[in-house]
């Protein structure tokens, strides 16, 4: 103890210096493993992928690898499949996000009201979200199969279909298949997020509004919606990007078919890389998709800025 006291009365002892360095380094040591991994497995491939977009890289062609400049982008400009995939992406993303959000909001409002067995119901309606996406895709593909699934027969009975056929092989209807699966799988995400936001609204606001004579619809439009608005905005923004990139269901259910009618940009990239093994062209499409998503995000940020300034 005496020695320790003597040591520590000397200003700037070595121990304190080492302590100080260790203290400075601590957060970096903790984050380093995660960061190194992210850099090696995400950032390096990202940069590599950007470079592939300007090179001729075909896995099965040993003579490929050369620099081709903007060749891929010129091809892309004349690629009708790509532009169809772009249109399909808008359709796929728009319909999926809208339906997921609408059903998610309704579900959240239903679950916000206390009732007996709410905990169990909540667990059950959120269950689809835990189902692996490949299984979701397969299962819905089976349900749309008239041999084994009930859906074509029901749709026929309701008069929506002329015959109990598989909509996944009908070019004009096929996109509804993956969209249905996506909605089924993705509603819980919206419902959970919105439910959390709903339950954060102070109850006494509703009571005050009721005392002031506001009806149910009035309360919803003047309290619930304004309170939910920020959550709705951020969730929709993020989900839109996520769903635009989400190719699993399409790869599993239709593989882009029939006649490329369900091919979205993300699944087109995967097909080019996985089936055609043309890594250069796949990367070029990926770069275009990345640029489009960045423009989209920037527009959203700008929109938010102008809205904030006006408000």
């Amino acid at each position: 103890m005496a020695i320790a006291d003597a040591l520590s009365t000397m200003p700037g002892t070595r121990r304190s210096l080492r302590d100080r360095v260790a203290l400075r380094l601590e957060p970096y040591l903790y984050t380093a493993p995660a960061l190194i991994l992210i850099a090696a497995v995400m950032l390096v491939p990202l940069v590599l992928g950007l470079s592939y977009a300007f090179r001729d890289i075909q896995l099965l062609n040993p003579f490929s690898g050369g620099f081709v400049g903007l060749e891929h982008f010129r091809t892309l400009w004349g690629d009708a499949n790509f532009f169809r995939a772009l249109r399909n992406t808008l359709w796929w993303t728009g319909a999926s996000v809208f339906l997921q959000f609408a059903l998610g909001l309704i579900l959240a409002l239903l679950l916000d009201r206390p009732f007996a067995g709410r905990g169990l119901v909540q667990a059950l309606v959120f269950l689809p979200w835990a189902v692996p996406t490949f299984l979701t895709g397969l299962n819905w593909a089976w349900m749309f199969n008239p041999v084994i699934g009930p859906l074509p027969h029901w749709l026929y009975a309701l008069g929506i279909l002329d015959a109990p056929n598989n909509i996944l092989s009908d070019p004009s209807l096929a996109m509804w298949g993956p969209i249905a699966a996506n909605v089924w799988w993705g509603v819980p995400f919206f419902a959970i997020t919105l439910l959390a936001a709903l339950q954060a609204i102070p109850r006494d606001l509703y009571e005050a509004a009721a005392i002031d004579g506001a009806g149910a619809f009035r309360r919803f439009s003047t309290i619930t919606l304004p309170f939910l608005a920020p959550t709705i905005a951020i969730t929709i923004l993020l989900r839109t990007v996520w769903i635009a990139n989400f190719a699993d269901l399409i790869v599993v259910m239709t593989n882009g078919g029939p006649a490329d009618r369900t091919q979205i940009v993300a699944s087109y990239i995967f097909t080019q890389a996985f089936k055609a093994l043309d890594f250069g062209y796949a990367s070029a499409i990926a770069v275009v998709l990345l640029v489009l998503l960045m423009i989209y995000s920037m527009l959203i940020v700008l929109l938010r800025q102008t809205l904030l300034e006006r408000g």
Partner: peptide
């Protein structure tokens, strides 16, 4: 009476 500037709380 002992300087504690460099000591950890535990010490």
């Amino acid at each position: 009476g002992a300087r504690v500037n460099e000591r950890h709380p535990k010490d």
